[in-house]
Amino acid sequence: MPRSHRSRGRAARAREPHPELDVDRLTAAWRRTEVRGGREWNVQPVSEAQAVKAYLCPGCGLEIDPGVAHLVAWRADGVLGEAADLASRRHWHTYCWRIGPT
């Protein structure tokens, strides 16, 4: 008897609604913590598709153009709290961050 290549559960799965994607949860998975110069930093990559605005890189002082992948970094151990740390986040060229802040 020939083998069937169809999944037996396909009809049942087709009736189930697709779960809504949680973008915050997905992007938080890429966030990491780094220690530099005795300070703890949250670092999150920004893909080309997510980069829709221009930013000034604090490492080199040059503009990060829209459509260029880069990193966003903010203090993870600031004394003023998480809201203040998020407000002071900065966009860095990936290379500038790698050689970067101390």
Results as ranks from 00 to 15, higher is better:
G9H: 14
R15H: 11
P58T: 00
Y55H: 15
G100W: 00
P2D: 06
A28Q: 12
R75W: 03
R90W: 03
E63S: 12
E48G: 10
A83D: 14
G38C: 03
G81P: 03
A11E: 15
E40Q: 12
R15E: 15
G61P: 02
C60D: 07
G78L: 03
G9P: 06
K53I: 00
I99D: 11
L26P: 06
W97Y: 05
W74C: 05
S4A: 09
A87M: 06
A12G: 08
V52Q: 13
A73D: 05
A76Q: 05
I99Q: 13
E82F: 11
V52H: 09
V23P: 04
V52D: 12
R90V: 08
A14H: 12
D22W: 00
S88F: 07
W97K: 00
E40W: 09
W41P: 01
L80S: 10
R39H: 14
W74Y: 14
D85I: 04
E34D: 15
A87V: 03
D85C: 12
P45W: 05
R10E: 15
H5L: 14
W74N: 08
R6T: 14
P2R: 04
V79I: 10
V72M: 10
H5Y: 12
L86H: 13
R89G: 10
L86R: 14
R98W: 04
L86C: 11
R10N: 08
R36F: 09
R13P: 02
L80K: 13
A84Q: 12
G100P: 02
L62I: 02
W30I: 01
P2N: 06
P101R: 03
L71M: 07
R13F: 10
P45N: 05
R89L: 11
Q44T: 14
A29K: 07
G100L: 02
P66A: 04
V79E: 14
V23I: 11
R39N: 08
Q44D: 12
P66N: 01
V72F: 06
E48C: 11
P66V: 01
L26Q: 10
C96S: 05
R10T: 13
L80W: 08
A49H: 07
A54D: 13
G81H: 03
R8A: 15
G67T: 01
L21V: 10
R10D: 14
A69T: 02
P45Q: 06
S88Y: 05
L26I: 04
P19S: 01
L21N: 08
A49I: 09
Q50M: 12
G59T: 01
A28V: 07
E48H: 04
A73L: 04
W41G: 00
E16C: 06
A12S: 11
A29V: 09
P17A: 08
T94F: 01
V46W: 00
V23M: 11
C60H: 01
H91N: 10
I99H: 11
E16S: 09
V72S: 07
A87W: 02
C57A: 04
S88D: 15
R6C: 08
R3W: 09
Y95F: 14
W97N: 01
V43D: 03
R3A: 12
R3C: 07
H93W: 04
R13K: 13
R13W: 08
C96R: 00
C96L: 02
R10K: 13
Q50V: 03
P58E: 00
